[in-house]
């Protein structure tokens, strides 16, 4: 039974991590309908930036964190401006391949600078965060992830639901020409959504780095794991991303714990195909209304 609970806890925290990673993805998709294959690489960039600032430059943690967020924000902006903008209106596959190209490029660059080894952060989380519950232990990182994640989810929910900029962003996703006619700066919305997404990526990258250490290959693999998560939840739903993340996280740890570790890596994809066959737009995705 303890084993079960430990796996449950692990699954939930892994799932929460996926959900956090998926957030940035959903953000980009919601506003500009771009499927971002460079997601894992963006996370890794954020994680490495934090590593450089916190260990190599020896900045205080909070300052390093803030600079990382600001840096990723600008990076997202730059990516949109120089790579995605020329492609507005091009075919889906070209946009996808562009992000794939970005992913390959970033990955190569990071491998070049940091190599393929695992890097880890200095210990900075307070010990008090670790929860003990009988024999079940919840590591402090997971608790911290959970708290930070909740704060961010709340902020995003609030941002999209109530702030003007959030409403403009949703309006662009909803009906682009109409938003344009009302003076919504559509290109700026795209740029902002990329910037925010990169920021969220950096956040989740840092969290992954704290839990597992940072390794380019591993983090970019998690970036690919985002696909089953968001598809499961529906590409355009933030709530769906969270639930999708939890489902995938639990599935993985339970398969890993009870069946086999090899199966663990593919089980999300198997479930994904099964769910898509029944619900083609994911569990919570908006059904697209199509007319000739």
């Amino acid at each position: 039974m303890e084993f079960f609970f430990q796996i449950l806890i692990n699954g939930l925290s892994l799932g929460f991590l996926y959900a956090l990673a998926a957030l940035g993805f959903v953000m980009i998709f919601k506003s500009s309908s771009v499927l971002n294959f460079a997601h894992g690489e963006l996370m890794a960039i954020g994680a490495f930036l934090f590593l450089v600032l916190s260990t190599w430059a020896n900045l205080p943690i909070w300052l390093a964190f803030l600079i990382t967020l600001a840096g990723s924000f600008s990076l997202g902006f730059i990516i949109e401006r120089f790579f995605l903008r020329p492609l507005i209106g091009e075919a889906l596959i070209e946009v996808i391949m562009l992000t794939v190209g970005l992913a390959i490029m970033f990955k190569g660059l990071m491998l070049f600078v940091f190599g393929g080894d695992i890097h880890s952060y200095p210990e900075f989380l307070p010990q008090a965060l670790t929860l003990h519950w009988g024999a079940v232990e919840v590591p402090g990182v997971n608790v911290a992830t959970f708290i930070v994640g909740l704060i961010f989810l709340g902020l995003f929910g609030f941002f999209f639901k109530y702030s003007s900029q959030g409403i403009y962003m949703r309006s662009v996703a909803d009906n682009q020409p109409a938003a344009m006619a009302l003076g919504v700066h559509v290109r700026r919305v795209f740029a902002i959504s990329w910037a925010i997404a990169a920021l969220v990526c950096a956040m989740s990258g840092i969290v992954i780095g704290i839990i597992n250490g940072i390794n380019v290959h591993e983090v970019s693999a998690i970036g690919l794991k985002v696909f089953p998560v968001v598809i499961l939840g529906g590409l355009d739903s933030i709530g769906g991303a969270i639930i999708g993340g939890l489902i995938i996280g639990l599935l993985e740890t339970f398969t890993g714990g009870y069946i086999s570790t090899g199966l663990r890596e593919v089980v999300p994809y198997i479930v994904l195909i099964m769910i898509l066959m029944v619900k083609p737009y994911g569990l919570f995705g908006l059904v697209e209304i199509e007319r000739v």
Binding site: S171, D174, A178
Partner: peptide
Amino acid sequence: QPFKYLTVEENLRVGTATRW
């Protein structure tokens, strides 16, 4: 051309985009 998935009031608020 409404924003279908926004509420009526949110739709109206998009109109303020020119003077954010």
